[in-house]
């Protein structure tokens, strides 16, 4: 059953990604409409599959790389749908949906042995921590996608190459605004995630901060986005500098997420 939902989700995301990419080439209102609809269906199937898994296993599927990648992908798609509704930026989908699709495919290629849930993870603090972390990561993913688009659009404007893609991409101001909004949502959530994570750490291991690699890198991420947000609010950092910094931030997020295993659970 979970498997069926999963296949359905991958198929729908695949179709949506193809349609969003087609949106870059052709201007058809129907294309945009269906890209959005199919993605929404895909997201629903993904959510149902996640819920189904959670009910079956009696815990949130966030405990290994396979589950986490799938959940990351779900969070990204959900965040994208929210931002697309708000800012009407279809082109963002052409950059974001393929990323979510790849994560989901990567997740399915990982084979994980069925195992007993380690007692250390059986804590509400852990679930809360993981949930917050993924939502903030999803926001940073959107910010990075927008940043890439910003740099492309800036390049077009500076070099005066005003082609079809230039017409499709949103205005610099809109992208700047989305990026800022992502930070103002993502960074506080990351803060909450880190705090709840250390509370969990204390409950599970008797220590708030154990300086393992995951924690250290999470702190680095937090500092990068804190610097970005601070620069934005006090000096007015925006544009190219902010875009590059949020792409760097995202690379570190990915690196931490994929490369840094929690010394205690994985």
């Amino acid at each position: 059953m979970t498997h069926l939902f999963f296949i359905l989700t991958v198929t729908l995301y695949g179709c949506a990604a193809a349609l969003y990419l087609a949106c870059l080439l052709r201007t058809l209102p129907l294309l945009t409409l269906w890209a959005g609809r199919i993605l929404a269906f895909g997201c629903t199937a993904h959510l149902l599959s996640t819920i189904h898994l959670a009910v079956n296993m009696k815990y949130l599927p966030l405990t290994n790389m396979q589950e986490s990648l799938s959940f990351f992908s779900l969070a990204i798609v959900t965040a994208f749908i929210v931002f697309e509704r708000k800012y009407k930026v279809t082109t963002l989908g052409s950059f974001i949906v393929p990323v979510a699709l790849m994560m989901l495919i990567a997740s399915s290629s990982l084979h994980v042995e069925a195992r007993q849930l380690p007692p250390i993870l059986q804590s509400n603090w852990f679930w809360f921590h993981a949930l917050m972390a993924f939502i903030s990561y999803a926001c940073f993913t959107i910010a990075a996608g927008v940043a890439v688009m910003y740099l492309i659009q800036r390049y077009f404007l500076k070099t005066k190459h005003l082609g079809a893609l230039f017409q499709k991409l949103p205005s610099l101001e809109t992208m700047d605004e989305i990026s800022y909004r992502c930070l103002t949502v993502g960074w506080p959530l990351l803060t909450v995630a880190i705090i709840s994570g250390s509370i969990w750490s204390e409950k599970a291991m008797g220590n708030y901060w154990i300086w393992d690699r995951k924690q250290t890198w999470s702190l680095i991420i937090w500092l990068i986005y804190a610097a970005l947000l601070h620069g934005r609010i006090t000096i007015g950092w925006r544009g190219k500098r902010a875009a590059i910094l949020s792409i760097i931030g995202f690379i570190v997020v990915l690196f931490t997420f994929l490369g840094m295993k929690h010394s205690i659970i994985w």
């Binding site: 201007t27 058809l28 209102p29 659009q153 404007l157 005003l162 230039f166 017409q167 949103p170 205005s171 610099l172 101001e173 809109t174 605004e177």
Partner: peptide, 25 residues
């Protein structure tokens, strides 16, 4: 809606406005 026949400016003044919207929203 399905072609770009009317989507682009064909006077200098309008071209300036269109560009401004792409930069400043």
């Amino acid at each position: 809606t399905e072609t770009k026949i009317a989507s682009s400016a064909v006077s200098v003044a309008f071209a300036a406005v269109e560009l401004a919207k792409k930069i400043l929203g």
